Amino acid sequence: MAIKPITGMLRRTFVVDLTIAGVIGFAMGNAFWYGYHMPRTNARDNFYRKLEQERAAEKA
């Protein structure tokens, strides 16, 4: 037999690919969440908090 049989190689590559995809997906998800989403949400919340405080100050 000139060529060695390939055993377990496909499974190992699949597990490695799946692990790498999971790690990259998790990292990109965190980068989006904490790098874009949370700062925008905090800015929006601060804007409405300030607006509400101004409205409350006008009524008082």
Rank of each mutant, 00 (worst) to 15 (best):
N30Q: 15
R11E: 10
D17G: 07
V15L: 15
A2R: 11
I24Q: 01
V15A: 13
M1K: 06
F14N: 08
R40N: 06
E58V: 08
D17A: 14
K4C: 05
N30A: 14
F47E: 14
E54P: 00
G8M: 06
G29N: 09
A57G: 00
Q53Y: 01
M28W: 10
V15T: 11
V16L: 15
R11A: 14
V15K: 12
P39K: 05
V15H: 06
K50T: 14
A43F: 02
G22L: 12
M28T: 14
M28F: 14
F47G: 00
I6C: 03
A56V: 04
N42D: 08
A43Y: 02
F26D: 00
P39Q: 05
Y48E: 15
K4L: 12
F32T: 02
G22W: 02
L18G: 11
F26G: 02
F14P: 00
T13K: 08
G8A: 06
R49H: 06
D17Y: 05
F47T: 12
T19A: 14
P5A: 10
N42W: 05
E54I: 05
F32V: 12
T19R: 06
M38W: 07
G8V: 03
D45W: 08
R49V: 02
A43C: 01
R49Q: 09
A56L: 11
F26N: 00
T41K: 13
Q53H: 01
K59Y: 04
T41Q: 12
R44D: 07
V16K: 09
R49W: 04
A60C: 03
V16C: 02
N42G: 00
R11G: 09
D17T: 11
P39R: 06
A56H: 03
D17E: 03
R11F: 10
A27Q: 08
R12S: 08
G22V: 05
A57V: 02
P5S: 12
I20A: 13
D45G: 07
K4W: 04
Q53W: 01
L18I: 07
M38L: 15
L10P: 00
A21R: 09
T13R: 08
F32Q: 01
R12V: 07
A57I: 02
K59H: 02
R12E: 07
M28D: 00
P5G: 11
N42K: 13
P5T: 08
P39Y: 02
I20T: 09
A2W: 05
E52S: 08
F32M: 09
A57N: 07
T13I: 13
G8K: 04
D17L: 15
Y48T: 14
W33Y: 15
V23F: 10
G35M: 05
L51V: 09
E52P: 00
Y34E: 13
V23C: 04
R40Q: 11
N42R: 13
T19G: 15
G29E: 02
V15C: 03
R11T: 15
M28G: 01
N42T: 08
L51D: 10
M1G: 15
K50I: 04
N46M: 02
G25T: 09
M9D: 05
I6D: 10
V23W: 03
E52D: 12
M9A: 15
A60I: 05
I20H: 00
V23H: 01
M38V: 15
A31C: 03
T13F: 05
F47S: 03
T19P: 00
A21V: 07
K4Y: 08
